[in-house]
Design a protein around this nucleic acid. Structure first.
Lengths: 188, 188
DNA sequence: TATAAGACTTGCCATTTGGCAAGAAGTAAT
DNA sequence: ATTACTTCTTGCCAAATGGCAAGTCTTATA
């Protein structure tokens, strides 16, 4: 829980009373490897914060291919936020890549924070926007070859490679698992 | 200007007085083909709305390769919003792909809207978040082959292909201009 | 320990894409 | 009309990547 508070305080100041209000609205949960935090075809009902573990966002193309859109490691907000806000059906899954410890907010509690904490909304929006922004900036570059994409992935997410199945990394980088295996062999 | 108002009203309701306040803070400008709306290395000073024309977001990799990150057509908000809010240096260019008509807000005016219009912030945040969200959803899929990426681009942005140089489309899709040319030939 | 299941690697070959160089088509200015 | 300039296309070959199939290695479970 303290991790969450430290994260939030990066985006603005809150007094102890306000911090307690946040803690009261938050719930700590665990999510086992492979379990889903939210699923395509459903309306996202919660916002999460990753305390421990790695979550991935993924979806299926029209051709049925599974695509990993992003990885969300410790100290990051996790939500299909636009659909969460709009009560709209998501097309993505959020799935635990490892056993995870999360802090979650129900939609009701999340909205209540806006009502009971003066200055919460600017903090919230900065968090949400940074979360969306990072996804777009740290992702693989489509015109680069697979080796370059892998090396940049290792720079951007050095802590992930030993914790998650390579097949997820491959699907994130847009290569087959076999190609990724060969790339890793050539680098060593 | 009416296009902007219609766009905004999708995200929430405003009365006529509030609409006038927005109009007073907005400035209509033109941007000639190839001119920059904002540049890498600088702090973004404005938020724009595309009334007419097409803008692209682009940047340069460490290897010096130019990458088109996104296209922004009519009726879309345009900004490096996270850096605009944070007064941080952007690493991206926003460049007119065609002669453009824009409506722009200075940072000062944009912030003033939050002060003088009750209910502006929720509208603003929905606009900004949708803008960031769409970018991530309509982009090319890295694991698909170049032909598929091109065909999906045509579905997602049917109005763009005849208006912007193919080299920009190629850099968006992550292929060389020559490959794109061959792909287009094979489809016909 | 034995077995099964999943994760990862490797070989082989076909296909896709890139790089270079040249050429064609369109556009603007003189 | 001529020239220069940009945009787009094409041919040729090398390199990168995918698809299939088989094999190895690790881990979980009985």
């Amino acid at each position: 829980m303290e991790k969450l508070i430290a994260y939030i305080l990066q985006f603005g100041n809150l007094n102890n009373q306000q911090i307690d209000l946040i803690k009261n609205k938050a719930t700590e949960i665990e999510l086992r490897k492979d379990a889903y935090f939210s699923e395509a075809g459903q309306i996202p009902r919660q916002v999460g914060f990753v305390v421990d573990g790695v979550v991935r966002g993924c979806y299926y193309t029209n051709q049925g291919e599974e695509i990993t859109r992003c990885f969300i490691g410790e100290n990051n907000l996790m939500a299909d936020y636009v659909n969460f806000e709009a009560n709209a059906v998501s097309s993505d899954y959020l799935q635990a890549c490892t056993d995870c410890k999360l802090v979650v907010f129900s939609k009701q509690n999340w909205e209540e924070l806006s009502r009971i904490i003066v200055g919460w909304d600017p903090i919230k929006n900065k968090m949400v926007q940074l979360c969306m922004y990072q996804k777009s900036r740290k992702g693989p570059v489509i015109s680069q070859d697979a080796t370059t994409r892998y090396l940049e992935f290792m720079e951007n997410y050095p802590s992930l490679i030993n914790r998650i199945p390579l097949i997820y990394v491959a699907s994130y980088l847009g290569v087959t698992q076999q190609s990724l295996s060969r790339i890793r062999k050539n680098i060593r």
